[in-house]
């Protein structure tokens, strides 16, 4: 343990309202602390710069999975374990369930939360590409009220998010139409080992076909840019095309412009680019399988 523990605070507000009041009392001074699977690692390494936190782990207002005809709504504290064990999630949003099952091992999945994963804003996180493909929306709450925003575009730069300092992510909503039976889904995480690896590339894609043509496609990738990337141009040039060599080439050409992978201690820019293109090809070919 390299942190100087006496310098850290962790409050335990009695309710969500109290938590929001604490947030509002001095915006930016207090930050939420959920399952701790990212923050505790930083603390241990002596790299957790922020010192004042409040725990939200015990706030039942932030838990639970609700289903309506149009949406599945997940409390921000939905753990990876809870997410995967929900029948509807497994049936309609399998990419998110696979992402959850490939994030750490069971002990991590019991503590890691979807809201925490979003707020931690790591470009290597496993769930954001799936969330983007599913057209997820976030509910942000504050003492001032609540608002829904699209998740796509939420991360604006490395570790930067489109939310106010007094706001908290409270729910994540997935439109069920985004993943109906006529959508084919493809998710692949490339890590260094089979279990509990941090991704080197994470690919999520979905497409709807009609008459042998791609009517609509969505593609998102992790670990290939400072934030999760929504490959909108790549997806849009696929519209109205059949899967063939030209289509694959054109899509790969677009993707090259949309991602900016780097060298780091886990992999190389070269590898990330090549494998991204390979996965794109495999995704497109999978539409025909």
């Amino acid at each position: 343990m390299r942190a100087y523990l006496p310098a850290y605070e962790l409050q335990r507000p009695a309710s969500l309202d109290e938590a929001l009041r604490l947030l509002a009392s001095a915006p930016g001074e207090w930050r939420p602390f959920a399952g701790g699977t990212d923050l505790m690692v930083l603390l241990e390494a002596g790299k957790l710069e922020h010192r004042k936190f409040f725990s939200i782990w015990h706030l039942d207002e932030l838990r639970g999975i609700e289903e309506t005809i149009e949406h599945i709504t997940l409390g921000a504290l939905t753990t990876y374990t809870e997410l995967q064990s929900n029948e509807t999630m497994r049936r309609e949003f399998p990419m998110l369930c696979v992402a959850a099952s490939e994030t750490g091992a069971i002990a991590i999945q019991n503590r890691g939360t979807l809201g925490g994963n979003i707020a931690n804003a790591s470009p290597a996180a496993d769930s954001p590409p799936a969330l983007i493909v599913y057209g997820a929306e976030l509910e942000l709450v504050s003492a001032r009220g609540a608002r829904w925003i699209a998740y796509e575009g939420f991360h604006t730069a490395y570790k930067q998010m489109r939310m106010e300092p007094d706001e908290l992510i409270s729910r994540i909503r997935l439109p069920r139409a985004s993943a109906g039976d006529n959508w084919k889904q493809y998710y692949r995480k490339v890590g260094t080992r089979k279990a509990q690896a941090i991704s080197k590339i994470c690919f999520a894609g979905a497409a709807r076909l009609g008459d042998g043509q791609i009517e609509e496609a969505r593609i998102s990738m992790g670990s290939v840019a400072p934030t999760v990337v929504s490959c909108t141009k790549t997806a849009s040039i696929l519209r109205g095309r059949r899967v063939n060599k030209e289509t694959i080439g054109a899509a790969q050409g677009e993707m090259k412009k949309e991602i900016v992978p780097i060298d780091d201690l886990r992999s190389t820019a070269d590898y990330r680019l090549q494998v991204s293109l390979n996965l794109l090809e495999d995704f497109l070919l999978s539409l025909e399988r």
Partner: peptide, 13 residues
């Protein structure tokens, strides 16, 4: 009843 890594759980929780 759930397995967790005790190195990642702060006392407060």
């Amino acid at each position: 009843g759930k397995i967790v890594n005790s190195c990642l759980v702060p006392l407060m929780q």
